[in-house]
Write a protein that binds this DNA or RNA. Structure first.
Lengths: 352, 352
DNA sequence: CTGAAAGCGCTTACAG
DNA sequence: CTGAAAGCGCTTACAG
């Protein structure tokens, strides 16, 4: 601790101590076969003795390289994104990159600030899970043309960026078909903002399934709300303002579904008995809820690893058209445990 | 995209374009009052026009400063740590620092690798939530004496680092007292590794409460297991191998408590009816479990902000003795909803 | 195999 | 108010 004010030791110090040139030390650092074994040993001894720490920033400056990747996430307190971040970091670390983290809290303006600040650290690439209401052209301006960008989860119009997303449409279709199989005909789509790409896609899948079943959705079955538990609970009433009232709902995601369950309970309806619903994401809580939630699993950690891999590939072969990767999503049925999806419609005329 | 191969624009380019020296551009960048307003405007115009991005790494190298703080977390998929990370990042960003993320997956050896890699990026400081089985001296070696380190959550013997932790002892005492008030006398402490500091402290608080109530814990009431749901479920049987068998358990954390609930159910016992238990952490799932879990809340996001603040303060006034900050923890009682803690002891001789 | 020299993009005294 | 020069800690041809 007494030396905590001392100059940090540099490659120069090693060179002096080992009585070689800086060039030689540099070669030792990068395991060049050009250095004599004895010299190498001597240099390495001194590095240990002096507690040398490689200054990668300096090396990056000189070599015009970067050893970091920026990860911009809207919300780490959402387990879906936390798992995603863990996967990204895991794969980046394995490839020798360090993760620059930036949280936006779903604010497009903070996102601009975060991107600007991260860009000053010269990341080799950016993985961006865009905040709601992101503007592609402003992002393009902040990121510039030199840094590859991978957009995750929420599609952004315009710029030619790589994209990794879930098969939202198919997922929502599976959920809707599942409720149809339970005999429901009046099925709502509950939650999310209709102008976000993932909500739009999920609504399409919902529509696909209904159309195939010959059901025409009533306008009042499409209820928007911010994708949080609280907002969903507050919006529950919107489902029941006008006849025909739905008997089930495909929810935008698990948070919304859990909120809706709360809202239903407050109105004296028992989810899974009087009303059936499904979620999206398979966050850990959906297995623990009462009743448990049938939902769609996307394995966010694996998505994180995949995002990192895509970005690293892009760094290797810089050019090439931008890539759109859509990942299938799996229906996790929890009805066996008397799940939230098991309510039969009141007028249970089973179709099919 | 056609210019994505072009040299990135530097301060030099701006100087040429604006017909001033690099020094002047540098002064403009840092809002120096020395520059004439007209000159400033001209320079700024060219910066925008050329799409200049400040290279903070180069500036840091020259100024011998750092604008990053490393955050080493054992497990982002644990919501407690994810929230903590979100809080850290939020506060660091507000102070103009960028977060270097490193995940260890609770592996002490990966932790060494991660620390080594992060150190090469010259963080101004490190916030470390140590992996199980961390070795203080190895950490000290990786971090060196020049970089302030804040240890979070799990105390590390030896080195003089700042520490931020929860009042585990008091928390566990509160939980134990709560169960005592329900009439329980045979209360187990379930889960965690006895050699981790947080488990040790929680066991002490548990012991405090029992001692005050005149109860001597049987050795078989102290059950260890890894702090995960799966391990906890698997270890459930250990509670019931020998008489006198406990009627309630203070669990090491929520994950363990949820696992124990699963294990109890498998053995035909209904948590909250035949057996009472409490958790620790207040992860979102504990409110949703069946029955809901009484637990201890630590507001991890606020802890993250606090950790960042401590580290930033240390950077301002470098010297000074290391600081030990212990945060109180709040009992969140969920018995009103027929919670997991409401089971009365079978032989309900209410004391007091 | 090793050394001297230039340069990555910035900042900082020091002159003028 | 602005410019010329040195230097942060590295790497990289280029000689030897």
């Amino acid at each position: 601790m007494s030396d905590s004010r001392r100059r940090r030791v540099t490659l120069n110090d090693i060179a002096e101590a080992a009585r070689v040139s800086r060039a030689t030390v540099s070669l030792v650092l990068r395991d060049s076969p050009l250095v004599h074994a004895d010299t190498r040993a001597r240099v390495e001894t001194h590095m240990r003795k002096l507690g040398y720490v490689y200054n990668r920033a300096a090396a990056n400056l000189r070599r015009q390289t970067s050893s970091s990747v920026a990860l911009v996430i809207n919300d780490l307190s959402n387990p879906f994104f936390a798992e995603f971040a863990a996967g990204v970091d895991e794969a980046l670390a394995a490839a020798g990159y360090v993760t620059l983290l930036g949280g936006t809290g779903e604010s497009a303006s903070r996102q601009q600030a975060v991107l600007g600040s991260l860009m000053e650290h010269q990341p080799a690439a950016i993985i961006l899970s865009p905040a709601e209401g992101s503007d592609a052209s402003r992002i393009a301006h902040a990121v510039g043309a030199h840094t590859p960008l991978l957009v995750f989860n929420r599609e952004l119009e315009g710029a030619g960026w790589d994209f990794l997303g879930l098969d939202n449409r198919r997922g929502a279709r599976l959920a809707t078909e599942h409720l149809l199989k339970q005999g429901h005909r009046r099925i709502a789509f509950f939650g999310g903002h209709a102008d976000s790409s993932s909500c739009r896609e999920r609504r399409l899948g919902y529509g696909d399934a209904l159309a195939a079943a010959g059901v025409t959705p009533e306008p009042q079955w499409l209820v928007e709300c911010a994708p949080t538990r609280l907002e969903a609970a507050a919006q529950t009433g919107a489902l029941f303002v006008r006849d025909p009232v739905p008997t089930a709902a495909v929810c935008y995601n698990d948070a919304v579904a859990l909120g809706l369950m709360l809202g239903l309970a407050r109105r004296g309806r028992r989810p899974g008995h009087d009303f059936a619903l499904t979620g999206f994401d398979d966050i850990p809580e959906s297995a623990m809820s009462v009743p448990p939630l049938t939902t769609l699993a996307a394995d966010p950690r694996a998505r994180g690893r995949q995002a990192a891999a895509l970005v690293l590939a892009r760094l290797k072969h810089a050019p090439g058209a931008h890539k759109r990767t859509i990942v299938p999503v799996q229906l996790v049925v929890r009805e066996s445990s008397g799940g939230a999806d098991t309510a039969a419609p009141p007028s249970a005329r089973k179709r099919r």
